[in-house]
Amino acid sequence: MRRIPLARLILGAALGGLLATTAARAADDAKLPKVEWSFSGPFGTYDLASAQRGFLIYQQVCSNCHSMNQLYYRNLEGIGLTEDQIKAIAASVQVPGGVDDNGQPIQRPGRPADHFRAPFANDQAARAANGGALPPDQSVLELAREGGADYLYALMVGYSDPPADMKMQPGMMYNKYFPGHQIAMPQPLQDGSVQYTDGTKPSLEQEAKDVVTFLAWAAEPEMVERKQMGVKIILFLLLLTGLTYAVKRKLWSDVH
């Protein structure tokens, strides 16, 4: 009799606190455009065609500056590439191959078991080539940014000329969605940045969506398996809860 308002009070306060926190976080920056992602929701899966197009963009655009050190070429099976395609992709780059018999470092063609080749040997080289800014590793970028896929998409489409009253640092670009609005990365994607082989029109929005789908997959390659397993496990647990509750009711019927 007394527990109900108590429970409500606490639940309300907890939810209120949570919502306030979320709202406050979101209000800090420009509102992110809403994108329909194939991978959102409890039944979401990656749109593999989109992820493959995204990989093409990564290969041709992103990988000139950004590493993806956590990924192996063999992982590309996860976006639906065949073994032969993966072998060809891996073999198209030269990777460090250990040392030769004289102890000199050698390069060899990549294999599926190799990590994605990094564009720079180390952070210093990366900074030197990019005006002092370090292009972040993209392996888990989607998880490492507030807003996740929505934010990355917004970043891709958020470039414009700076407002008249804004003083830009030399070498910086204006981006509506980047914290502080000054980003060292020049606009990476434009309409027609890549040629898609499947006939999709390479508009900026399409490219952004594809590359973000690829990055989301790269960050959480287990997501589809995870969600599918989750649905089964929760259904099972609901059943078990019902059964256990029935046993409890039966047993306690003697007591009440």
Binding site: L237, L240, T241, T244, Y245, V247, K248, L251, W252, V255
Partner: peptide
């Protein structure tokens, strides 16, 4: 009594 009641909670 309480093992089964706890089991409900655990589920």
């Amino acid at each position: 009594y309480y093992t089964v009641k706890d089991s409900v909670g655990i589920c």
